[in-house]
Simulated assay, not measured.
Amino acid sequence: MTDFITTELHTARCLLRPWRTEDIPLVPPIADTRAISWNTSLKFPHPYGEEAARTMVSWSQADAGVDKWQFAVFKDGQLIGGCGTIRGEDVHAHTAVVGYWLGVDWWGRGIASEILAALVDYMREETDIEQLTATCFGWNPASRRVLEKAGFRNEGVRKGVVKKWGKTTDLWVYGMLL
């Protein structure tokens, strides 16, 4: 395993590196939109201000490279999103849950697929994680396509288990053996 704090993952268009304190003011201008929050857990708030960014960066730095692998995503020197994994607990400690988000201006350009592929390669080559899990909401078919392009397989659909802002939808569950 490498020293996580110095990790840099390069894709054709992006740089992924661990979150830093100096990233905090860069997050709200791209994250403060209902469109992103709509497709994420309640841990990704709307509105998304500097305090939320501070909490996220601090959280991402705790146990970084051991139980969390969280990356800021940059394109041409500009923060455009984030991605990462969180180790499972107890009998699931050999697994990790994947998450990713991009600023709305970067949707539909293949960037999510690109960064997810880099994240999967990193997890396979540099960690002891053996299996990845990802979920997406039923109203987000674009996220399903991103997961499928990266090699994740649909493992099932949990009907009506997501409730956000008064709306209910299904939760699609994906997995990948490393």
Rank of each mutant, 00 (worst) to 15 (best):
W106Y: 15
V120F: 02
E114M: 10
A64F: 02
A93C: 14
G88K: 04
W59E: 13
L42D: 15
D128S: 11
E125H: 10
D90Q: 12
A64V: 03
W106P: 00
T95D: 11
V104D: 10
G82N: 11
D105R: 13
H46I: 02
L102N: 11
G88L: 00
R124Q: 14
E89A: 13
D105M: 01
T95K: 12
W59H: 09
D128V: 09
M56I: 01
T95E: 14
F71H: 07
G103F: 04
Y48S: 05
A93I: 10
V120K: 06
D67R: 15
D90H: 13
T85S: 12
S41G: 14
S60F: 00
L42Y: 08
G82R: 08
K75A: 15
R54I: 00
W107E: 05
D63V: 00
G49V: 09
E89G: 13
V98G: 02
A112I: 09
R124Y: 05
Y122Q: 07
D90G: 03
G77W: 12
Y100S: 11
A64G: 15
H92N: 08
V66R: 15
A118I: 05
D63C: 01
G82H: 09
E89T: 12
F71T: 09
V91R: 12
E50A: 12
G81W: 07
R54L: 05
Y100G: 05
K75W: 05
E126T: 13
A96K: 06
G108C: 03
E114W: 10
E50C: 07
S58L: 03
D121M: 01
L116D: 04
